[in-house]
Simulated assay, not measured.
Amino acid sequence: MTIKYVIFDMDGVLVDSEPFWAESQIETLAQYGVHITEPDCEKYTRGVRVDELATIWCEMFNLAIQSTALRNQIVDTVCQKISANAQPMDGVYELLDFLKEKHIPVALATSSDRQVIKAVFDKLNFWDYFPIQCTAADEELAKPHPAVYLTAVKALNAKVKDCMIIEDSVTGLIAAKAANVRTFIVNEKFNDERFAIADERMASLRDVLAKLKMEL
Rank of each mutant, 00 (worst) to 15 (best):
E167C: 07
M60F: 11
V106Y: 07
A84M: 11
E140Q: 04
S17C: 15
R201I: 12
L63T: 13
F121H: 15
T68Y: 04
V15I: 14
G172H: 00
I132N: 11
E215H: 12
V153N: 08
D51P: 04
V6E: 10
D51S: 12
I104N: 09
R71T: 15
S112A: 12
A69C: 15
V50A: 14
E42W: 15
V116F: 07
D113I: 05
D76A: 09
M202W: 08
V92K: 07
P88E: 08
F20E: 08
D207K: 02
F184S: 15
K211W: 04
V153D: 02
F61V: 03
T183M: 04
Q31R: 05
S67D: 09
K43V: 03
V160W: 02
M10G: 05
E140R: 13
E200V: 14
N62H: 02
M164N: 00
E42N: 06
D192P: 03
A84S: 15
L95K: 02
I74G: 01
R46I: 03
W127L: 04
V208Y: 13
W127V: 05
E215M: 06
Y149C: 00
E59W: 00
A176M: 01
I185V: 05
A69S: 12
C79Y: 07
A64M: 08
K118P: 04
Q66L: 04
R49M: 10
E18R: 11
T171L: 01
Q87N: 02
F195R: 06
I7Y: 09
R206M: 03
E27D: 04
A142K: 12
V106I: 14
E140Y: 02
E59Y: 08
Y129D: 04
F195E: 07
A196T: 06
F184H: 13
A155C: 04
E188W: 03
L209D: 02
V13T: 09
V186I: 10
H103I: 00
A109R: 03
C41A: 09
A198Q: 13
R182P: 05
I74K: 13
R194G: 11
L95D: 09
T135Y: 10
S67T: 10
K213H: 03
R194I: 00
P144R: 05
A196C: 08
H103P: 07
Y5S: 05
L156C: 10
T28M: 04
Q80I: 14
G47C: 13
A196K: 15
E94I: 01
C134S: 12
P105D: 10
P39Y: 11
E42V: 05
C134E: 13
F20S: 03
Y5G: 00
L99Y: 11
E38R: 06
L96G: 09
A198R: 08
T110G: 01
L108V: 10
M214S: 02
T77S: 06
F98E: 13
V92H: 10
D122T: 14
Q66S: 04
F8N: 01
A22L: 00
